[in-house]
Design a binder for these strands. Structure first.
Length: 260
DNA sequence: ATGTCGTAACGTTTACGA
């Protein structure tokens, strides 16, 4: 089963590029972030026409996540537990059935957190605490599961082409990195690093300052696997060519292949 | 060039978030 995560930066602006990629890459499941759309305005019928079931968790203008899945989805849950007052649409999960059993799939859009310091950075760290708690629950189930999406965390200096350019940014703060490690160290596998240990692997290039042409990228889109899912990992990749295509998102898809 | 996008609205331009 091929599962991909893709921060599309607006469904309206990305409908054509996303459709072309779905038809080319043919993921069984696509986790989307920054749909920037309400559930009502998300073009579900369009994706159903491409053979996908659709589950969206959106809001007006900003944020928003969705799952496109060829297999039927069960037990769909929207919103990260732990704060009833949080109205930002950043988390969705569902269970899909593989040939050998179920897989729990979580899609996330972690808060950016800039500027540092400030309330947005505080919100990021609080959100990561809640993510830690949900991650712990997933591990306790001792079953195949993954959490994939735009983590807005550069885990290590080697995950940036120019780490010195990010020292004041929320994505590279020691607190952001520690919170990410704390989740990883519960027992998750960073799938991309498991497949590609070499340094220069990026998933995001800013629209500004010719970042793409100069390959000034960062690795912030991650797929974290429980041990039971990591045991099934056969391949993974980053579709970086999309960044050079027509009307690209500033992120590119990251995918894993699981024998499940 | 504080360098670019996407979204929304008191819209032909500005504000915000990234």
């Amino acid at each position: 089963m091929k599962i991909a995560t893709f921060n599309i930066n607006g469904i309206k602006a990305r409908l054509q590029a996303l459709t072309d990629w779905l038809e080319e890459a043919r993921p069984d499941v696509a986790l989307l972030q920054e749909i920037k759309s309400t559930d009502e305005n998300f073009p579900a019928a369009h994706f159903e026409g491409l053979g996908y079931h659709v589950a969206a968790h959106g809001q007006k203008s900003f944020n928003g996540v969705a799952i496109l899945s060829k297999p039927e989805m069960a037990d769909i849950r929207r919103g990260l537990p732990g704060d009833e007052a949080d109205e930002q649409a950043r988390w969705i999960e569902a269970t899909v059935q593989g040939a050998q059993g179920p897989l729990r799939i979580c899609g996330l859009y972690l808060p950016n957190g800039n500027p540092v310091p400030g309330p947005k950075f505080d919100y990021k760290l609080a959100w990561m605490d809640r993510l830690h708690d949900r991650a712990q629950e997933l591990l306790a189930a001792e079953a195949p599961a993954l959490m994939a999406g735009d983590y807005n965390v550069i885990p290590q200096d080697k995950d940036a082409r120019n780490p010195e350019a990010w020292t004041d940014d929320a994505l590279a703060q020691p607190e952001s990195r520690a919170a990410f490690r704390r989740i990883l160290n519960l027992g998750f596998t960073d799938a991309v690093r498991a497949c590609h240990p070499r340094a220069d692997i990026y998933t995001f290039w800013d629209y500004q300052a010719g970042a793409w042409n100069r390959d000034h990228g960062i690795r912030i889109d991650h797929v974290l696997l429980t041990p039971q899912a990591a045991d099934r990992l056969t391949d993974c990749g980053i579709d970086r060519d999309l960044r050079g295509g027509d009307k690209p998102s500033d992120h590119v898809p990251v995918w894993v292949e699981l024998d499940i």
